[in-house]
Design a protein around this nucleic acid. Structure first.
Lengths: 339, 339
DNA sequence: CTTGGCACTCACGGTGGCAGAGTGCCAGGG
DNA sequence: CCCTGGCACTCTGCCACCGTGAGTGCCAAG
């Protein structure tokens, strides 16, 4: 009972603070939430919570605000995931269904997510390595430059210019195309790399050098230069919470322009099947120490296609945000799976 | 002589204000710039400049700051374009040469521009309509769904999924591919659309329906849905000048997330051969009324491939910014032209 | 036309006092 | 043992006040 009420107090503090952005005091708390005890009792509980490190006061004689640890406890034990309304679900679905190609899906998702959560949204493009080869096209640019175009079953298109030492004619290009497609089409990336490596050995001698060059590029495109792209939207929402960040806003924006950082944030959530929350310093990015990240993977269960999530102030509506992220990820996953 | 000194005073005011961000007074002005006259004289000139609307004072008994009109005069008549250093030019070139594909060129350019100018940079992807068709590829997704991939000579790849009423086999797909490529390859977009429209009529009857569908999609992809994309970078730099914008920062960020707005800003500069500057309300975007846009087209003289530019506070280093924009545009143009 | 002098205005920074919110502690009651 | 009301204390935020300094406009003299 005792312990339980304390948690209830913590929840009340978090919820109130999220709404008001002002340190919350014992009196207000006792009044607005049906705790059934007097402010003085609440004060005692708060005192205990402070000692345990869940809340803190910005200065003496002000109310309390949650600490990182406090938010963590709230997210882990005190908050459900509040379901979206039917209208919201329908809105998501209809908005995403209007997409015409992969790029469009990603761009729509990221805007949608930013709008729903009123925060900064990040969506990773479906990763190459977990999709499979649908088609490889070779186009002659000039006698010794080829354009290699790789199309995946998620609709992603990768392109590379390849310089070859000796000129080739269209017939040879056709043969090369045939060989590459024959051995790689339909394979998942992980397998395709192996098949590609074996390919030159089994081919006609005169094709070998070219095949070696091409497969090298293919491998490089698929693995080495895992240039995972991300889309970003809703940065304007950061200013909404500018009170929280004040002058650190600049550093946050800078961090968000670094693809590497973004990938680290949402990439790690990609493998877990559920929505994960990183609070404050848990993000491991110094500039984001006063923000939280809510992220998840999307598509195909365990080996997800990519990650998506939102970045916002620690003082955020976790249940609502988590619900939105989960819902969008689900729909995007279905959309790409069915495609 | 009289008129001339006034302009000199205006120039001095603009230059000082750009550096200090503080209203500049007559005394400082007479001291720091070799005007050869006393503060009192400067005051008279300032008074005249104010009456003509080139400068204004934020409040009585403060210095003067330039108005939109003042900046305009400065840009038109008082500022040269200060050339970049040799080192800077080399930096641009080497940074851009590392790009591996079109996407990479654009992303590198936009980051480069943001870094050079320390402002928000915008780069439009090379437009479809002013490039020419290099190759059209058709891939069978399922019996009655085709993926149409369009490759341009600027290296851009456009893709569309096409639903066709009656199934086709690989042979037919091959024929269609041949026909489309035969009639469209090497054509500029504007011409290609006409050729595409004529195509079905001259083809074998059994291919006509499919060709009609496909060419419709091609036309649509090329013209109707002129989905001109843009890349954005350096939004963090906005906070540097946050003193100027204060709370309007949010609206600026919102405006910058609207592709339409960005396209309007830099698209209009695309046709002019030179660097154009839009100051304050000249941008015609309400949220950007306290910013300036420096933009230009890049690539191939009159019919440019796209536009690029930067958005920054009205209080910006115009000569330096203009030089940077021009230089980057030039190198990108060369890079894409040579490709 | 320029210049020095002069009175005037007004933003800005520092000080002091007041009110309000919130706390911690304590003694009494269930 | 826990809850409660009371009370003194602390601190921030706000407002009013005031002196300072930068900057102006005007004027009369060179």
């Amino acid at each position: 009972m005792l312990e339980e009420r304390r948690l209830e107090v913590l929840r009340a503090i978090v919820e109130d603070f999220v709404l008001s952005n002002e340190p919350v005091g014992s009196k207000m708390l006792a009044e607005r939430h049906a705790l059934g005890v007097s402010p003085a009792t609440v004060r005692n509980d708060m005192s205990a919570l402070e000692e345990e490190g869940y809340i803190t006061q910005p200065h003496t004689s002000a109310g309390r605000i949650p600490t990182d640890k406090g938010y963590r406890l709230f997210v882990d034990r005190l908050s459900g995931v509040k379901p979206l309304s039917r209208a919201e679900r329908r809105a998501i679905q209809s908005f995403l269904e209007g997409a015409v190609d992969l790029d469009d899906v990603v761009r729509r998702s990221v805007r949608l997510l930013a709008q729903l959560t009123r925060q900064v949204a990040v969506v990773q493009y479906p990763s190459l390595s977990s999709s499979s080869v649908r088609h490889i096209e070779i186009v002659t640019l000039s006698p010794n430059r080829l354009l290699l175009v790789l199309i995946t079953d998620t609709g992603r298109v990768e392109q590379r210019v390849v310089e070859i030492p000796t000129p080739v004619d269209d017939g040879v290009v056709g043969e090369l195309r045939g060989l590459l497609n024959g051995s790689l089409r339909g394979r998942r990336m992980a397998d395709a790399t192996e098949a590609a490596a074996d390919l030159p050995d089994s081919a006609r001698p005169d094709l070998r050098p070219h095949l070696t060059t091409l497969t090298t590029v293919v491998l490089e495109a698929l693995l080495e230069r895992q240039e995972e792209r991300v889309a970003l939207a809703g940065t304007a929402n950061l200013t909404r919470a500018s009170v929280d960040f004040a002058d650190s806003l600049r550093f946050i924006l800078e961090a968000l322009e670094e693809q590497v950082v973004l990938l680290k944030l949402i990439g790690s959530a990609r493998e877990t099947g559920t929505v994960t929350v990183r609070i404050g310093r848990e993000t491991d990015v110094d500039a984001l120490r006063s923000t939280s990240v809510v992220a998840t993977g999307y598509g195909l269960g365990p080996a997800a296609l990519g990650g998506m999530g939102v970045v916002g102030p620690m003082r955020m509506d976790y249940p609502g945000t988590m619900a939105a992220v989960r819902a969008v990820a689900k729909y995007v996953g279905e959309l790409l799976g069915a495609d």
